[in-house]
């Protein structure tokens, strides 16, 4: 068994793995977008820039202070999350009473500013991030070779996504979030500080983007544009999954990563567009997305 449908199994599993890795990032990023959209009703266009800032934060920590990967995994999301909290408090919170479009424009502007600042300081060429030594090597699975770091990215992303899902759908804190998503003023009238919850939720969503950025740093080059390229695909993922659906974001993220990988094997010409084709089809059939509820 070295070929499936005329494709060498090595190549098939190789692309499947790349698909899962991409899917892991799609899932993490679209999860953050879904969490933010659910409560804030804002499409966070700065998400790609915040992912990039997470990667840069890890790179800067390593280059200038010698702080390694594991600490970055904790520190970068906190640092970038704090910038998110500041943005929410000083700017986004003024827009909730206005149309969706204002939040989108503001976050888009913020993304451009951050990308511009980083490009000006560090140039547009990518910086490599040294893989932590504990991740060198990999596992021979017989049918393919699985690099350790890739395995870690998939597992870590799954764990983070499922924990987030669990907290939102199965805990008391999550019940506040779900309720405030439906009717924030009533939840506040029960005595819950909803504005603070919104601020922290934005910080958390932004922190998730930064976490994805740290995890991406050793795989992709750390560059100011890294988020801008990715986020377009992630928005398509979110549209397909259904804006605001947590489980939808996770499943669609991984699923579309895999579909993209398989397309690369069977019909490489379409691999860059397959997600957008699916998006169009889904929008025609289910405008609210596969897991979205019509509002």
């Amino acid at each position: 068994m070295t070929e499936i449908f005329g494709v060498p199994t090595q190549a098939l599993f190789g692309q499947l793995l790349i698909g899962l890795i991409n899917g892991a990032f799609y899932a993490l990023l679209s999860l953050g977008l879904a969490v933010i959209f659910g409560l804030l009703n804002i499409i966070n266009f700065a998400h790609g820039a915040q992912y990039m800032m997470g990667a840069f934060c890890a790179w800067l920590l390593l280059e200038y202070w010698g702080v390694g990967y594991w600490w970055s995994l904790l520190l970068a999301p906190i640092a970038v999350g704090v910038t998110g909290v500041v943005i929410e408090r000083t700017m986004l919170s003024r827009l909730y009473k206005l149309d969706h479009l204002y939040g989108l424009l503001l976050t888009f502007g913020i993304a451009l500013i951050f990308q511009g600042l980083f490009t000006q300081h560090y140039g547009s060429s990518g910086q490599p991030y040294r893989l932590p030594t504990e991740f060198s090597g990999g596992y021979n699975l017989g049918f393919m070779f699985l690099p350790k770091y890739r395995a870690w990215v998939i597992v870590a992303s799954l764990v983070v996504c499922l924990s987030t899902w669990y907290v939102i759908e199965r805990t008391k804190l999550g019940s506040y979030l779900r309720a405030a998503t439906e009717n924030p003023s009533l939840v506040q009238a029960f005595g819950i500080n909803v504005p603070r919850m919104i601020t922290l939720t934005y910080g958390f969503g932004v922190g998730l983007a930064a976490l994805a950025g740290v995890m991406a740093a050793p795989i992709y080059q750390v560059s100011p544009q890294m988020g801008a390229n990715l986020i377009i695909v992630v928005f398509a993922v979110v549209v397909i999954g259904g804006m605001g659906s947590i489980l939808g974001a996770i499943l669609t993220g991984f699923g579309l990563g895999v579909i993209e990988g398989l397309t690369k094997v069977f019909y490489p010409e379409a691999s860059n567009t397959v997600i957008f084709v699916i998006m169009v089809l889904v929008l025609l059939v289910k405008p609210a997305g596969m897991f979205g509820r019509e509002r």
Partner: peptide, 17 residues
């Protein structure tokens, strides 16, 4: 009434702190 669709009955009951 303000019953939350995304919460079950007991979660609705336990929601107000």
């Amino acid at each position: 009434r303000g019953i939350f669709a995304s919460l079950d009955v007991e979660e609705n009951l336990l929601l107000p702190p």
